[in-house]
Amino acid sequence: MATQPATLSPSSERSFLQRIRSGDAVAHTLTGMAASTILAVTILLAYHLWSGSSLPRSAFGWSFVTGSDWDPVAEKFGALPFIFGTLTTSLLSLLIAVPVGLGAAIFLAELAPRGASDALTFMIELLAAVPSVIYGLLGIFLLVPFLQSTLVPVLVSTLGFLPIFQGQFFGVSVFSAGIILAIMIVPFIISVSREVLLAVPQDQREAALALGSTKWESTWKIVVPYAMRGIMGSVFLALARALGETMAVTMVIGNKPQIATSLLAPGYSIAAVIANEFAEATGNMHQQVLIELGLVLFALTVLINGAARLLILSTKAGGK
């Protein structure tokens, strides 16, 4: 106490400090409670998905994810067609979106002047803000007629010998869903990949060019490998989004629980079946089965988001 300034008496000093501390403590507690709410919500979410699906988990076990019969009225529930549909549409969308997105990211990061690149990126990021139900609307009335009249006839006549392009095409199909998903996820891939490409040190490019490589060689052999983890991270983020996407897929996939070799055949996805059947579930078992599908989707996205975050963090932390 002896070292305290003489102008303040010990008692007023104590109350002053207490006042400060109590105000800080209130703020700390209040904001800490809000933060804890998030933790509670997340735990409660996982808990509800787990406890809400106890009936089918004990009744079917793992045969739930391997069975392919889906008949709610007869209480037959095999989720394989939905898991298959979710995985095929997502992978198909990656197959289209990754090359296009990476190409565009390279153009925006390496070739375009900074001003034009920023303006184009801004526009492309707006694509990511378009609600998914609007993509569904455009899917039904713009994409499906276009596929039916133009793209699919061309594909069938050139690549029709492949089993994935055989059979009758009704417009709604796994193929249509994959294309809509590709359009929806490409902005993510572009915007994240462009950022990690821009973060590659300039001397990497200069060294490659000084050794006589062309612009493309320096980009493809030096810059892209340097940014590879970040690019992979963007792909995983996009994949997580594609897996959970509901509305646009529901509107164009055809909603038919089958496993077909042809991409032109209608299919079904996990999110779509939840969207279509949850509100009108025919009984306790049916509803719990749909919750279990939600659990599957939750687990998938948690895994993939985790992987994406690790990849992006590791590039930010130490380059390669």
Binding site: A35, S36, I38, L39, V41, T42, I43, L44, L45, H48, L49, G52, A240, L243, G244, E245, T246, A271, I274, A275, F278, L290, I291, G294, L297, F298, T301, V302, N305, R309
Partner: peptide
């Protein structure tokens, strides 16, 4: 908390719907 937030952000919106239904 950060991890929980990231997790929550990645949950598909349809699953959030199931959660709100249960709540």
């Amino acid at each position: 908390i950060r991890y929980a937030t990231d997790l929550l952000n990645g949950v598909p919106s349809i699953v959030i719907g199931i959660f709100a239904y249960a709540l």
